[in-house]
Structure formats: C-alpha cells, structure tokens
C-alpha cells in the first residue's frame, strides 16, 4: 500500500525535486560522499547507501532512515562527487518526501520538529521570529517527549543573550505577509500531487 502511495517513483527518479529529478542512476557507489561527510559516523545508513536505496527504489527504508535527518546540508558530498550526483539534493528530496508521507524517523524527532516549526514560523511572519521559534520548539518537544528538563535546557543562555542585546522581544516582520502566504500556498499545492 505504501508503494502505491509513492506513485510513479522509480529507481531513476526521486519522489520530489524541483525542477528536475536527480539522476541517482549515475552514482557508481564509490563512497566519496560517505568519506567526506562530517556526520556519517552518526548515520544508521551511510550517505552512499542512502543513494543506493534510492537506486533500488527501496523508498520505505530510505524515507524511514535516521540518516536523512542527521545530514547537516554542508554540500561536501555533492561538491566532491566524481559522478556529479547531487547527494545533498537527494537528502533534501528524501526529507521532503519522508515528512509528506509521515515517515520521518521518530528517533530524529528534534530535527524534524525544528525544521517544521521553523518553516511555520516564517510562513506566519515572513521573517524569522527567534523567540517564538524557541518557544514553540520547546513546547512541542515537551508535549511530544514529556522531557521537562528540555524546557530549561540552554535557559541560562537567555540572560546572556539579553545582556548582549541579542534578544529581540518585538522582532521585525515582513510587511507584505500576504505574498508570503501565497508563495507558501503555491509551493505546497503541487507537492501533494
């Protein structure tokens, strides 16, 4: 059933990418992405294996992997790939598909939640409201994990930031939030297709 939901996904096409799909078939599995990745050690599936799963059309495994949420997006893999496969782009595409299908790895909840809340924040404000972001993120994690100490983690930083005039209680918002709303709308519509 899951495969049906994935629609026209084949080993050559990643589920989501704009404007063109990434040609994962070009990858010859040399592993240079894994070799240079600053966080590969923390991944359940190494970057070259993530691309391999995409080659095989093993979307279930790829989309549920923790690795795609460990990726920090530093572009080292894409930069050094001898076959010019945009490995970082593959990670992006898999994250997008993983979230859209509700398959994001529970073990990487913090990352997933943060990115979601970040996007909601700019959706609402046009520009990032840091305090609101932190607040929402902490509450969300608290509600989800029940870890009360997390609420106060880094709380010590707040006065430090305040002292350094780095906290803005009334941050600037984009003036034309209507256009932001419409951009989000137009970019989300097609994604569901």
């Amino acid at each position: 059933m899951e495969n049906q939901a994935l629609g026209q996904v084949t080993s050559e096409r990643l589920p989501v990418h704009f404007p063109d799909p990434i040609q994962v078939a070009n990858c010859y599995q040399c592993g240079k992405c894994t070799a240079g990745c600053p966080v590969a050690m923390h991944m359940d599936v190494a970057p070259n294996q993530v691309v391999r799963l995409a080659q095989l059309g093993e979307w279930e495994k790829a989309l549920r992997s923790r690795a795609i949420w460990e990726c920090v997006g530093c572009q080292t893999c894409s930069t050094r790939c001898p076959k010019e496969v945009d490995c970082a782009g593959v990670m992006d595409a898999l994250r997008e598909a993983s979230l859209a299908r509700g398959m994001a790895a529970p073990g990487r909840y913090f990352v997933v939640a943060f990115q979601k809340i970040f996007l909601e924040n700019i959706h609402r404000n046009g520009r990032l409201n840091e305090l609101e972001l932190i607040g929402h993120f902490k509450v969300d994690v608290l509600l989800h994990t029940g870890r009360i100490p997390f609420l106060f983690k880094d709380a010590g930083l707040a006065p430090q930031l305040g002292k350094r005039k780095k906290l803005h209680l009334i941050p600037g918002r984009a003036r034309d939030r209507g256009v932001v709303e419409r951009i989000f709308e137009r970019c989300s519509g097609e994604r569901k297709a």
Partner: peptide, 24 residues
C-alpha cells in the same frame, strides 16, 4: 520587504519553496 530565504528548513522540507523565497 525582504523575506526569509527559508534556510535549511525550506531546502529540507520543500524544495520548490526553497527556490521561491530567495527568488522573491
């Protein structure tokens, strides 16, 4: 009237949006 570029969140979660925001 600049707006946020979407940062990591946009390119991680919505590729088209991650191009649209900076394009604006």
């Amino acid at each position: 009237d600049w707006i946020c570029c979407g940062a990591t969140a946009a390119h991680s979660l919505n590729h088209k949006l991650s191009l649209a925001l900076p394009a604006r």
